[in-house]
């Protein structure tokens, strides 16, 4: 934290320091948020504090799929209307929420809680891959969708998992990569365009 906090009240400095520890919040944003909190009405801030405390007290990870949930096992894992024979593997709970918002997938999920990143000391053992393998052995699915990010590390994670769970009875797929809706071909980089070409579909 920079030196100007020395002249601030220790309460403010403390608040700025705590906010600064959150992902994506730099020192400047932490300062802005802190002063916003100070200026906000008390009831709003008490409500925010209450949400923070409740999120820690009431939320946990589902024992089956590791999504953030209030009940265990989670609503998705116990929903009989969903296709429990299909598992979509994502890096974090937030990715599952993004897919849920499409209303296009009706299967279950498995949250890895990260991705393989050797340079950060994160290998397969640090993720929930062994739980996934046990889950598959216990109740073999018919389909697995690997929905990790299309980065080098996301791709290495997907490749590792597909090698671990390879089976003739399981259809394993990876999310398509290509041009986004509303995107301009002219603005698409060569690698994405090549991938889009390779994954082109026949119009029926």
């Amino acid at each position: 934290m920079n030196n100007k906090n020395v002249s601030l009240s220790s309460v403010i400095s403390d608040l700025i320091n705590h906010l600064n520890q959150l992902p994506g919040i730099g020192p400047k944003t932490a300062e802005r948020l802190a002063f916003h909190i100070i200026k906000s009405p008390e009831n709003k801030i008490l409500s925010l504090a209450d949400s923070l405390i409740k999120s820690k007290q009431k939320l946990s990870f589902c024992n089956n799929c590791f999504i953030v949930t209030e009940i265990n096992p989670c609503n998705i894992c116990t929903d009989e209307m969903r296709d429990q024979k299909s598992i979509c593997i994502v890096q974090d709970s937030i990715d599952a929420y993004a897919i849920e918002s499409t209303n296009n997938y009706n299967g279950s999920y498995h949250i890895l809680n990260g991705y393989i990143s050797p340079i950060n000391g994160i290998g397969p053992n640090e993720l929930t891959i062994s739980s996934l393998i046990k889950r598959i052995e216990k109740k073999p699915p018919t389909e697995i969708i690997l929905a990790t990010n299309p980065t080098i590390e996301g791709d290495a994670t997907a490749t590792y998992i597909s090698n671990q769970i390879k089976s003739e009875n399981i259809k394993i797929s990876r999310l398509a990569v290509g041009i986004p809706f509303g995107g301009d071909l002219d603005y698409t980089d060569p690698k994405t365009l090549t991938q889009a070409f390779n994954s082109r579909q026949i119009i029926e």
């Binding site: 080098i152 290495a156 490749t159």
Partner: peptide
């Protein structure tokens, strides 16, 4: 590194990086 990327390739590349 062309896709799909194996863990051995990624971790070896990461050792060079480190």
């Amino acid at each position: 590194f062309e896709r799909p990327i194996k863990l051995t390739n990624l971790s070896s590349g990461n050792i060079i990086a480190e």
